[in-house]
Amino acid sequence: MDMTLLLQVTLNGLMLGMIYIVVALGLTLIFSIMNVINFAHGEMYMLGGLVAYYFSEQLQIPYMLILVLAMILVGVFGIVVEKFFFRPFRGELLPALIVSLGLSMTIQTLTLLNFGTEDQSVSTVFPGMINFLGALFSKERLAIVITCIVFILSLYLLIQRSKIGCAIRAIAEDREAAALQGVNIDRICSFTFGLGCALAAAAGVLIAPVFYVNPYIGGLPLLKAFIIIILGGMGSLLGAVVGGLILGTVESFGTLFLSVPASNLLGFIIIILVLLFKPSGLFGHE
């Protein structure tokens, strides 16, 4: 097979995987300490895209600043949402899941009423293409991959090296023991939920110029994020990274050798196989 084609398909998979990872990291982070499966996570991604559209197209603010602003705005929104909607159900999987479903529909409908159904585009920040050994890659996609790697490494450092990261890991390990050691559970949960939402918003901002923005864009990345965290292991950050790269590559090559619908099926086949043979995922705890 043509090497250029293989390289192109691999690069496509890498780009897909990176975006999936950033969305999945937030989702798995929230699950790891709150035991909440947040169906409204896709809406945080969508809100990020929306902020990017308004700030970029209406107010012409520099894009890197928009990225920071969107993360702060959606992160704060996440903190409010956590306090009023998820805190009463912390640790209770089913009620929290139903709340998140309701929240997802509410945010989507409110956005629909205010934003309309039309697809809105965000002007590209890095126009032009890069020819890498015959394979083509747009500069904006390359920028996304680099930014995503920065996010992944920053989150890793935050979780592994910082005091707050230590508290997050402690809560994920054993909430009661962490509380006994003086960790403020409410504050850390609030921060982590906000951080997870901010990561989803960052993915939304990054992807907005590549695709388009409308109230429905959050559904697909959320679905992919679920596949990734089941594959990588619920609550595992390393699992989300590895799972995202696997899914991106599988989908990209699946489309090449099969078709788009068949390639989309592969993700679900992976979920079934993982649940059958290794329910905890690649890096999850039993």
């Binding site: 780009m15 590549v210 489309t255």
Partner: peptide, 9 residues
């Protein structure tokens, strides 16, 4: 679908 790169490749 939003990312058509795999299909278009």
């Amino acid at each position: 679908t939003t990312d058509f790169f795999p299909l278009l490749t």
